[in-house]
Each structure stands twice: as structure tokens, then as C-alpha cells.
């Protein structure tokens, strides 16, 4: 697969790999140039501890994967980092600025934009309106200036141009005026990612970007994520698809029962005893680093479990 990637990707990947070469393969390892530094982040739901992360650093400009079995606290950690949930304790910084207790909208404005596991395309708005909504600094979004179109038309024009470029890049330009609800699941994922890029974030947080995407679109999604890294954007993603993890990530963080149990490059981290233990019980005899096994029935089984879990979650939130 890597054969058909442009050479720059490989170069950039190699560069990032080199910068992470000396990082210790231990949970909470220090990175040479961290963009996110979190300390003692915990989140309790009633008596249950969903997240208990002692220390975590995310390397700037790298693609970091956050993996772990169901209920490991990945999405909760995601929600905490992006301000969608309040931690019980803990501190973290993004690009040197503390984000503890900062509301989700301000986290996004500071350059850390996320997507959702169940896509939140605004289905009764057109694709273009979705894109425009992602843009920052539109004076027309203030109540008073909204009443004088002359004050916001120029910015609207610039936004629209930017949106059209992004849509072309994500091959959604033909859907420009369709309702987002009419898109396929994969297209919605693409739209959500494109929309997040409207604010040119320094860090993109993707919550299961591959969930529900049909295989035909997988490759293009992976390509987009890799090209983001090439442009210098930091990517942190939660994923169950081991293929994707192996294929594009520069660094893997493994969570289990709310804690970080292992860290390392994708090639080696799967063999870590802690990781095997984390997945133990259901798949203790499976080598998680072995693609041939994972790509077949085990992956399917894992995905089926994830889907089942998602369904229950969806029911719960109703």
C-alpha cells in the first residue's frame, strides 16, 4: 500500500519516526517536542474510574493513535482533552497553554479541533453551509454585525473560496449544495474532517474516523490524514481498526481500564506484554501485531463488538 503513496509522505514519516526514535517505550514517556502534556487526569462516574492518566505527552506534527479494548476510557479521555467533559482531577496544556476547565468551544478556537465517533454532520444544512460553519473569525456571527451584510460579505466570500478548495480536495465539490443528511456515512466522515479543517487547526482529534466508512473510501481518508501530517498538523485519533493504526500512525498509545499501559511505535507496541494483557481474556492467544490475523475474522469480530457497543451507547443517550 505504501508504494502508491507520494514519496514526501514517506520522507515526512521517516522524519517523525527519527524524532521519536529515542523516546522511551514506557507509558507516559517524555517526547522531544510535545504539543499536549497531560498530568494526573482522572474522571470518575459514580464509583467507576473511567480515566486515570498519570502522564501523557503527544508529539507535535506526528500522527498518534490511541487504542485499547472497549471501555478503556479512550473516548472519555478525548472528551476531557477537548473540553466536552470535566475531569475529576488533572491538568493539561496544549501548546504551552493550560486547557484545564476551558470550555469546548474555546478549546476548538485555540486550535485543537475534534470530530465525533458518530458523525455529527448537520444533516439539514447543505454541505457548503456545514463548511462555512467551520470557519473562524466571521464577523457576521455576532448578532449586531449580522444585521449589516456589508460587514460580513467579504469574509463570507473568502470562507466560501476556502471551503470550495477543501471540498475539491475531499472530492465533495459535486455535493456542494446537497443536504449533508443525503451523504453516505463515509462522505459524512470526510465532510466532518473537511469542516474541522476550515479553521486550519494545529491539532486534529479524530474519534474513530474509520467507523462506518466503506472500504472504497478508507484509502482516501488515510491519504488525507497523512497529508495533514505532511502539512505540519498534529493528529491524535482513537481507532479500533488495527490496519489503520499500523498503516499511518507514528506513535501508538495503548489504554486499558482508564490507564495508559503502553506506548511505542506501531511496529513494536503490539508485542508489548501489557498490550497483550490488556486485550487478554477475549483474544489472549492472538498476536495483535500480526496483520494477517487481524485483517481477517478477528478484525471483523472486534468491529462487530464495537458496533454492538455503539448501538447500546446510542440507545443509552436517548
Amino acid at each position: 500500500m505504501s508504494a502508491d503513496q507520494p514519496t514526501t509522505v514517506t520522507d515526512r514519516r521517516a522524519e517523525v519516526a527519527a524524532s521519536l526514535a529515542d523516546v522511551a517505550r514506557t507509558p507516559g514517556a517524555a517526547k522531544p517536542d510535545p504539543i499536549v502534556v497531560a498530568d494526573h487526569v482522572t474522571r470518575h462516574f459514580g464509583g467507576m474510574t473511567a480515566v486515570d492518566v498519570d502522564h501523557l505527552e503527544v508529539q507535535r506534527g506526528a500522527i498518534t493513535a490511541l487504542i485499547g479494548p472497549n471501555g478503556a476510557g479512550k473516548t472519555t479521555l478525548f472528551n476531557l482533552l477537548t473540553g466536552f467533559d470535566r475531569p475529576s482531577t488533572g491538568e493539561w496544556t496544549f501548546d504551552g497553554r493550560s486547557l484545564h476547565g476551558v470550555a469546548a468551544a474555546r478549546v476548538a478556537r485555540s486550535g485543537m479541533v475534534r470530530t465525533f465517533q458518530l458523525t455529527k454532520a448537520l444533516s439539514r444544512m447543505t454541505v457548503m453551509e456545514n463548511m462555512r460553519l467551520g470557519a473562524p473569525d466571521q464577523p457576521g456571527e455576532r448578532l449586531v454585525t449580522a444585521l449589516v451584510p456589508a460587514l460580513w460579505r467579504p469574509r463570507e466570500k473568502a470562507i466560501t473560496e476556502q471551503a470550495e478548495e477543501l471540498l475539491a480536495r475531499f472530492k465533495l465539490d459535486t455535493k456542494r449544495d446537497d443536504f449533508a443528511g443525503s451523504l453516505s456515512g463515509g462522505q459524512r466522515k470526510l465532510l466532518e474532517m473537511a469542516r474541522a479543517l476550515m479553521s486550519s487547526p494545529r491539532m486534529l482529534m479524530l474519534d474513530e474516523p474509520m467507523a462506518g466508512v466503506n472500504p472504497a473510501l478508507t484509502q482516501s481518508l488515510l491519504g488525507h490524514i497523512e497529508s495533514l501530517r505532511d502539512e505540519g498538523t498534529t493528529v491524535l485519533f482513537v481507532e479500533h481498526d488495527m490496519h489503520m493504526v499500523r498503516h499511518i500512525s507514528d506513535w501508538v498509545v495503548v489504554m486499558a481500564e482508564g490507564r495508559i499501559v503502553a506506548e511505542g511505535p506501531p511496529e513494536t507496541v503490539m508485542q508489548d506484554q501489557a498490550v497483550v494483557d490488556a486485550y487478554l481474556g477475549k483474544h489472549h492467544d492472538t498476536d495483535l501485531g500480526d496483520d494477517s490475523l487481524l485483517s481477517d475474522e478477528v478484525t471483523e469480530q472486534l468491529e462487530a463488538e464495537v458496533r454492538a457497543e455503539e448501538d447500546t451507547r446510542t440507545e443509552e443517550t436517548r
Partner: peptide, 23 residues
């Protein structure tokens, strides 16, 4: 106006709008 667009987005899914940096 863009203001109305943000409201419409909130009507659809406020978490999505929040994730795009709108208060």
C-alpha cells in the same frame, strides 16, 4: 446571516457546533 447559520447548526446538533469553536 452567519449568525442565523450558527443558530441553525445548534438546532441540528449543538455538540458539533461547539466542536467548531462556537460558544
Amino acid at each position: 446571516s452567519p449568525w442565523g447559520r450558527v443558530l441553525k447548526g445548534i438546532r441540528e446538533d449543538e455538540d458539533a457546533v461547539r466542536s467548531l469553536g462556537k460558544n
